[in-house]
Design a protein around this nucleic acid. Structure first.
Length: 863
DNA sequence: ATGTTCACG
DNA sequence: ACGTACGTGAACATT
């Protein structure tokens, strides 16, 4: 299901890129316009009444490429399934059909919007007819109303044909009057009116070259005007009623999308149609009581387990139901006293009793709160669906099921949303839903596991993600201790400081306003104080740091605002924000999202413990509130030094970069030496090193000269020179960048060292920006993703090692390239050796991995 | 609900 | 010529 989208060739080898792009555009149009009637007109062929009039008409047009030709009938089919009328008329162009029908519609009192890539159609603009011309991409259009035409050209829409007649058209290949272009044509029209008016008065003009050309080319001009004129009365046999738009023909459209492998469009379709989506068989749910437990624990069959929590944070949310199925029978209950049954407890914790489920980590955490452990999980449908396609990162079994064309309600569909969200009163309804979940897990297990194997991702799943889900559950459950009193103390200090700055800002600005509102701040800075506008956002002036930093010498307010912003961020997000998450056990239990990021990294929510301040000291103080759970313990942290560059050195095979790491050089100084053409790192100045470091980062992100220039404040030319020099010095890196983009184009995805996959359909986009973005992603994802693979392996090995060595130390946090532990002081010495050895042996690369450690009484001191 | 800003790797 | 760094989450203002 996931493996064909790659090349924009469907299973039968038909190109589908134009079809895909067309449908994308159509989606946007339908959404924006909400039409009651719709029509898409096509050219019928090359010969029309215009070619009869003028043989050369459109004579120089390049031939339509064959891939596009083969897609035209598909586009017509698709439009048909989407409930949109298509039409072509021999001897006429699509323009004439559009003109004729829009004329008819207008006469009928309708408002008409014409969407086209061709500016010629703007002549059709009237008070009721708007012509939208695509300017770039698919989303941006220029809307032509009579006012806009006037503003842009200085003439009325129906004078456009006079203009075109006079100036001719090079792309349609018809001549006008010699030496007359847009400017002259408009001037003449404004002076005389129509072409006929011009020629009525041509004799009165004073002698000039222009007059001579007008007279000489009169016939041509009239012919060109005729060619340019869109026929409003073509023999179109359509009536308006036939154009009525009633929406998609769901069933046919779905089959069509399936045939074309348009999975993303399939995903977007409302609800799979009943007759094509697989309906789940009716299930009888029996009570999960002691008798049922006896049956389960004595069975040798694999069981599917559904433990349903209600609410998004499973560390606090209540369990609402439990269901266990062997595929034939479904046992469910909402009475949790069953979890006190020792046989059930033992069975759950027995790793020899194989189980399937959806979301292992959540299940472990939920059951933990009821004193149960679980083991023996072989299939976690959530993890597998994410590995198969990182875009399927919905944490919801109903949504995953829909990808596989199974009609299982999503959480939102079942429980409702917003204020209406509630557990159904009817217990059997709930249990039936849980049984359906079990059924779906059972139904899809083989299929999904086969896909995983086909993608060569089985060991990524068996050896990394599945064991990691257990490690993460343990980390979340353990939680990190926070001294709320410390946060309270900071809260007071910062509050005073904020009040002071606030007062000073109001004084300086001469009035009170909300400093946190970019809108109000913009007015103060750029209107009241008249500071120069450096950057604009969609909604107004940008007031972001880089803008304010450029303005800070111009007014004392700017500096104060910068300070205010910094402190208020720390105050609201961290000092105040974190306190809300401290549980009665004095700990914060974050939730790691294991199936969200496109690269394979983790993310952390409620709260996010992966972005606790460190770069500026006021913020870094927050870390003083993070402490070990016991007095004579310490926080111990270990981080990989430059993993991403080491990964790049490994996957690119670049000799110079590999050498730098093998010899344990200062990599940024080494890069500086190379790109600045120095003989030794001794000649590298701190500024050179800084620039080289930024260049190294840029390389990892999929470099662009502009991005680099912005980052280190140099010109784009200089940045381009850096990059060129970089690629000369590290040719292997250059080769990797070229190869990986090519790989993405050919396969539709890129991979990490452990075969984690990211699909990049945009690599084929016609839009420059979209395509470039996909290319940078292709370069970055294997690097960032492989680094994520590595630390995941290290975490699993680390947890094993702690148990094996009988250490009390706990792994608490992961922040992308570092692990944070708490441990008795007595174990620190052991950890200083053990942790780096486990981390640097997590995978074998062509370059060594380097690990740095630190420890102290708080997280602040462990750095 | 969306946009802006800013915290981290 | 195009208009940019890669990956996240949360607070706040505004719609």
């Amino acid at each position: 299901m996931h493996n064909v989208l790659d090349k924009f060739v469907n299973g039968e080898g038909i190109h589908t890129n134009a079809l895909y792009a067309f449908n994308n555009m159509l989606e946007i149009i339908l959404k924006d316009e909400q039409p009651t009637h719709a029509l898409v007109a096509f050219d019928a062929g090359k010969t029309t009444f215009r070619t009869e009039m003028f043989r050369e008409y459109k004579g120089t047009r390049a031939k339509t490429p064959p891939e596009l030709m083969e897609q035209l009938p598909l586009i017509q089919d698709m439009l048909n399934y989407r409930g949109i009328k298509t039409y072509e008329l021999p001897n006429y162009e699509a323009d004439d059909i559009i003109g004729t029908m829009s004329h008819k519609a207008e006469a009928d009192g309708m408002d008409v919007t014409i969407i086209t890539g061709d500016r010629d159609l703007t002549q059709l603009t009237t008070d009721k007819v708007t012509v939208k011309v695509n300017v770039k991409g698919v989303t941006e259009t220029e809307s032509y109303t009579p006012e806009h035409v006037k503003e842009k050209l200085g003439i009325t829409p129906n004078q456009i044909i006079d203009m075109k007649g006079l100036m001719g058209d090079t792309s349609d290949h018809y001549p006008g009057v010699e030496k007359v272009g847009e400017k002259t044509a408009i001037k003449l029209i404004n002076e005389y009116g129509s072409m006929e008016d011009i020629y009525d008065h041509v004799d009165e003009m004073k002698k000039s070259k222009l007059k001579e050309h007008l007279i000489a080319d009169k016939d041509q001009a009239y012919l060109s005007k005729k060619l340019a004129t869109i026929n409003l009365d073509a023999p179109v046999t359509l009536n308006l009623g036939e154009l009525e738009y009633r929406g998609d023909n769901q069933e046919e459209l779905m089959q069509f999308y399936q045939k074309m492998n348009f999975n993303s469009f399939l995903d977007k379709m409302d609800v799979p149609h009943a007759s094509t989506a697989e309906e789940l068989a009716e299930i009888k749910v029996e009570e999960l009581d002691n008798t049922a437990v006896e049956k389960i624990v004595n069975s040798t069959k694999v069981h599917t387990l559904v433990v349903e929590g209600f609410g998004d944070n499973y560390h606090t949310a209540p369990i609402v139901g439990i269901l266990i199925s062997d595929g034939d029978q479904y046992f469910g209950t909402t009475d949790f006293s069953i979890l006190e049954n020792t046989d059930l407890k033992n069975w759950l914790a027995d790793k020899t009793k194989e189980k399937y489920l959806f979301d292992n980590k959540r299940t472990i955490a939920l059951l933990h709160r009821y004193g149960c452990e679980i083991a023996g999980i072989s299939f976690d449908m959530l993890l597998v669906s994410y590995l198969l396609d990182t875009n399927d990162n919905k944490q919801d079994i109903g949504l995953v099921a829909k990808n596989y064309n199974i009609n299982l309600p999503s959480e939102e569909e079942f429980y409702g949303k917003g204020v209406k969200k509630a557990v159904p009163e009817d217990e059997t309804m709930l249990l039936k839903y849980l049984a359906q979940q079990a059924q779906v897990i059972d139904l899809l297990k083989d299929k999904m596991m086969t896909e995983l194997k086909d993608n060569d991702q089985d060991s990524l799943y068996d050896e990394i993600e599945l064991p990691l889900s257990i490690v993460l559950a343990e980390m979340e459950i353990k939680g990190i201790t926070v001294e709320v009193s410390k946060l309270k103390e900071m809260e007071n200090t910062f509050a005073t400081r904020l009040a002071e700055i606030e007062k000073k800002i109001y004084q300086e600005a001469g009035k009170e306003f909300n400093i946190n509102s970019p809108k109000q701040l913009g007015v103060i800075l750029f209107e009241d104080l008249k500071l120069p506008v450096i950057k604009k956002t969609k909604t107004g002036y940008s007031t972001s740091v880089d803008v304010l930093e450029k303005l800070q010498d111009k007014s004392p307010v700017v500096k104060m605002v910068l300070e205010y912003r910094q402190i208020s961020k720390i105050q609201s997000t961290y000092v105040v924000g974190l306190q809300k998450f401290v549980q009665p056990d004095n700990k914060i239990h974050t939730i790691y999202l294991q199936t969200l990021t496109q690269t394979g990294r983790l993310s952390s929510i409620e709260p996010n413990l992966q972005n606790i301040p460190i770069r500026i000291d006021e913020g870094k103080q927050i870390r003083k509130a993070f402490v070990p759970q016991h007095d004579d313990w310490e926080i111990f942290s270990a981080d990989y030094s430059q993993v991403e560059l080491r990964v790049l050195a490994h996957i690119s095979g670049d000799e110079h970069m590999q050498e730098a790491f093998k010899e344990n050089y200062d990599i940024h100084a080494h890069t500086a030496m190379r790109i600045f053409g120095l003989d030794s790192t001794d000649e590298v100045t701190p500024n050179m090193r800084r620039q080289a470091k930024a260049t190294n980062f840029g390389i990892v992100y999929g470099i662009s000269d502009y991005g680099l220039s912005q980052n280190i404040g140099i010109t784009r030319k200089q940045a381009a020179a850096f990059i060129e020099s970089y690629f000369e010095q590290y040719p292997g890196v250059k080769q990797y960048m070229d190869d990986i983009v090519k790989y993405a184009r050919e396969n539709g995805y890129v991979e990490t060292i452990m075969h984690r996959r990211r699909y990049l359909p945009d690599i084929h986009a016609s839009n420059f920006n979209v395509r470039n973005f996909a290319q940078r992603t292709a370069m970055n994802t294997p690097i960032q993703g492989s680094a994520a693979d590595i630390i995941k392996v290290a975490m699993i090995n680390m947890q094993k090692m702690l148990k094996k060595e009988n250490l009390q130390a706990n792994l608490l946090l992961q922040v992308h390239d570092e692990m944070i532990f708490e441990a008795p002081k007595s174990e620190i010495e052991t950890l200083e050796k053990l942790v780096p050895s486990v981390m640097d042996s997590a995978v074998k690369l062509d370059v060594p991995l380097k690990v740095e450690t630190a420890h102290g009484k708080t997280w602040y001191e462990a750095k």
